[in-house]
Design a binder for these strands. Structure first.
Length: 752
DNA sequence: AAGTTTCTACTTTTT
DNA sequence: GTAGAAACTT
């Protein structure tokens, strides 16, 4: 039985043990805020006798939630029961599911992501006869999202300009479409829950009675809807514990408003405030750099971050000629650190402002034969084949979901073209029913010749060509068949059945490499679905769809594979690495050019830079390129203003290279030479092994020319080579030498 | 209806 | 440098 308070510093301990009333913890990076949260939960449960189900802890990512809950379990030495811990969105989704009746919702609602949203916006624009060129769907979507964050409905919203008034009308239509589809978007999950609490006193009362203690992580990233929600839940009891770092507020674009910290202080004037300023992560050199970068930011409570870790190595600033050189520098440097025993590949991370920047880096890693982990880019759940498969499943779960229906009704091709689809949509619209119901009507009316005209004047048999009608009804039969099966099959079985019935596999696997990859993704999805097999048949599909809608990519970052991580600065938040490379520290990249005319946005860029710097424990590299190609043209870039804020006493060998005076004309030559200097190595040559360490981590999927696909179950270095044990399904376990076996890694770049 | 080509806009970040 | 939509052809 460990003493929960034993390993806390005084500030942490005070925060943990202040049980009642509102508490604000301002926690610098690496100051142990997760530790404070987890210890507080453990303390409440064990020392104060609070029942776990009385606690609600909200985080922003599933990963953070998972980590919290496993750490709490470790602290308490037992499994947790009844504790509510999850993201805002997931928690709200669950509440809405339970209170569907009160919230005026169908309990089977589906969750639309931004891609689905865009389709709905387009439909709404079409319905209102508005030109997509004039009212850009993405702009309208962001207007709607913003409104929802601020708890504004089309009715309560007050447009300031004419375009805003038009957007308001689209918003109105958009809402009608969502309702017709039994769908909610991300914003709705928060908005509808907040409105539910505001409008249904007894529902709110129920949740207030249940939850006696609330904890909120990353409070600086809450938006108005989220803040309203927790304030409502806190009620009279006001046991609200929030942890914030205003210096890490980087989600303004998503409606987050760090001024919620100020609102909290005003709304709960009697709150206790704790500052966590002791940093357990970084060297003093890194902290000094971070402080210097963030100090220039106004409106912040100055914090004095300190550590007793010592100064550590100086920072490295490197100016590369272009992004290729920048990338090779990173890879070479990682290889050097690894070969000198100063770091392992897994301890290294490369961070950038935009996903597009990962390309040059990936090229370099591949050229050097060094494995890497990539977060983001083409997100797993954004892939076409995955979205198709999920659309089928969503449609089975909720056939009124027209967005999904339209997505898959002709995928693979089954002769239902644009025309038929438009007719179906219009007809359904006239009847005021979903497209699914329209299909059912079509089936019923089949044979009856044009006598049953609706107000619209058209009866179904006249609407579609006989061929199209046949195809539409065939699709309906398919769908009805699956719906019947859904209750009896597991999600994985159902998915298999859909893929089979639609001949999706043969359509996808056209012999191309891309087809194989896409198919492999679907098999991966089936594996994920299989996790839901133990659940009761009635809820498995709904739970699967909900959770799949609410996961992010970082959530699936494999923690085992010993390879450097490539990720955006945003997804780096909350993580730490021994060695951090921040690339593209250039005006226009970081800070991004979109922030130039908005001081608030510029401050956010600064904080983004700060987040990156503070991820580093030991070594920090700040890189920029003189020249960078961006969409067609290429730019000559100036070093980032943030770089200038880093005191040169913290930097070693400042100004190693100068590219500013180089002539443009010599570019081609220089580039060619540089490429020759880094000969391409195939992934399993011993040469790369000695520099890089193990190539095959346990769990890595591989393909062998003879044995086919398998999974690495053991790997060890033997002299200059690597011995790998691989389990090949149906063929047993083989021990292979990496240099001879011609093993091909099956890179699942960003999923689990 | 489906397959071509051409054009356009997009690349900030994500629950 | 790409992906997706629109325009055009078969």
């Amino acid at each position: 039985m460990t003493d929960i308070l034993a390993d806390l510093n005084p500030a942490q301990r005070e925060a943990v043990t202040t049980v009642h009333g509102p508490v604000l913890v301002l926690a610098g990076p690496g100051s142990g805020k997760t530790r404070v949260l987890t210890h507080r939960v453990a303390y409440l449960i064990r020392e104060c006798g609070v029942e776990p189900y009385r606690l609600m802890a909200v985080t922003f990512t599933n990963k953070a939630a998972r980590e919290m809950s496993s750490r709490i379990e470790r602290l308490l030495g037992s499994e947790l029961r009844g504790l509510t811990i999850g993201t805002f969105h997931a928690t709200c989704a669950r509440i809405l599911r339970r209170e569907a009746a009160h919230a005026n919702l169908s309990p089977g609602y589906v969750i639309y992501d931004e891609d689905d949203q865009l389709r709905v916006v387009r439909q709404a624009l079409k319905d209102l006869n508005l030109d997509e060129k004039r009212y850009r769907p993405v702009v309208v979507r962001s207007f709607i999202d913003r409104a929802k964050c601020e708890l504004l409905t089309p009715q309560t919203l007050e447009p300031r300009t004419h375009p805003e008034e038009v957007a308001r009308r689209v918003y109105e239509r958009y809402e009608a479409l969502l309702e017709a589809n039994d769908a909610l978007d991300f914003g709705d999950l928060l908005l509808r829950t907040a409105l539910l609490f505001e409008q249904e006193a007894e529902v709110l009362e129920k949740y207030r009675r249940r939850y006696h203690f609330l904890l909120v992580d990353e409070f600086q990233d809450t938006n108005m809807a989220q803040y309203r929600l927790i304030r409502l839940l806190a009620g009279e009891r006001r046991n609200l514990f929030v942890v914030a770092d205003e210096d890490q507020a980087i989600y303004r674009f998503r409606g987050a408003d760090y001024r919620n910290i100020q609102r909290f202080r005003e709304d709960f004037p009697d709150h206790k405030l704790f500052l966590l300023e002791r940093n357990y992560r970084s060297t003093q050199t890194i902290l000094d750099a971070a402080n210097a970068v963030i100090a220039a930011s106004p409106y912040r409570t100055p914090k004095r971050l300190h550590t007793d870790k010592g100064r550590g190595p100086l920072l490295t600033v490197f100016e590369a000629y272009n992004e290729e050189e920048e990338a090779s520098y990173v890879v070479n440097e990682i290889q050097r650190l690894v070969s000198q025993g100063l770091a392992t590949p897994g301890e290294c991370a490369v961070m950038y402002r935009t996903n597009a920047q990962s390309r040059a880096l990936e090229d370099a890693f591949i050229r050097h034969g060094m494995p890497y982990k990539l977060v983001g880019a083409t997100r797993f759940y954004a892939r076409r084949e995955i979205r198709d498969a999920l659309a089928y499943l969503r449609l089975i779960h909720n056939p009124h979901d027209s967005v999904s229906l339209e997505r898959v009704i002709n995928v693979p091709r089954r002769g239902i073209g644009e025309r038929s689809l438009a007719t179906l949509a219009q007809w359904a619209g006239e009847l005021g029913v979903s497209q699914y119901e329209a299909l059912q009507l079509l089936k019923e009316n089949k044979g009856k010749e044009g006598t049953e005209g609706t107000e619209g004047g058209l009866s179904p048999p006249m609407l579609f060509g006989t061929r199209a009608q046949k195809q539409l009804l065939a699709f309906l039969d398919l769908l009805e068949g699956w719906r019947e099966l859904a209750g009896r099959l597991t999600v994985a079985e159902l998915l298999g059945r859909v893929l089979e019935d639609t001949e999706y596999e043969s359509w996808l696997r056209d012999g191309s490499e891309e087809g194989e990859e896409r198919w492999a993704n679907l098999m991966e999805l089936r594996t994920v679905a299989a996790d839901y097999d133990p659940l009761p048949r009635e809820t498995a599909l709904a739970t699967f769809l909900e959770e799949v809608a609410l996961v992010a990519d970082v959530d699936n970052l494999p923690e085992t594979a010993e390879a450097p991580t490539l990720l955006t600065l945003h997804s780096a938040k909350g993580l730490e690495f021994g060695v951090v490379f921040i690339v593209g520290l250039e005006e226009g990249i970081l800070p991004h050019s979109r922030s130039f005319d908005d001081p608030e946005q510029m401050e956010e860029e600064r904080r983004l830079c700060y987040v990156g710097i503070t991820r580093a424990k030991e070594r920090l590299y700040l890189l920029h390129a003189f020249r960078r190609s961006r969409y067609g043209g290429d730019d000559l870039n100036v070093p980032s203003r943030f770089l200038k804020d880093v005191p040169s006493r913290l930097v070693q060998g400042y100004g190693t290279r100068r590219h500013g005076d180089r002539e443009r004309g010599r570019l081609g030559e220089g580039e060619r030479q540089r490429q020759e200097k880094s000969p391409s190595l195939s992934p399993s040559t011993p040469a790369s092994l000695s520099q890089v360490g193990p190539q095959f981590a346990v769990g890595q999927r591989v393909r062998h020319p003879l044995f086919g696909e398998g999974t690495v179950i053991e790997s060890s270095l033997k002299g200059d080579d690597e011995e790998v044990k691989v389990a090949f399904p149906g063929k047993g376990i083989k021990t292979l030498l990496a240099s001879f076996a011609r093993l091909q890694r099956l890179d699942r770049s960003d999923d689990s």
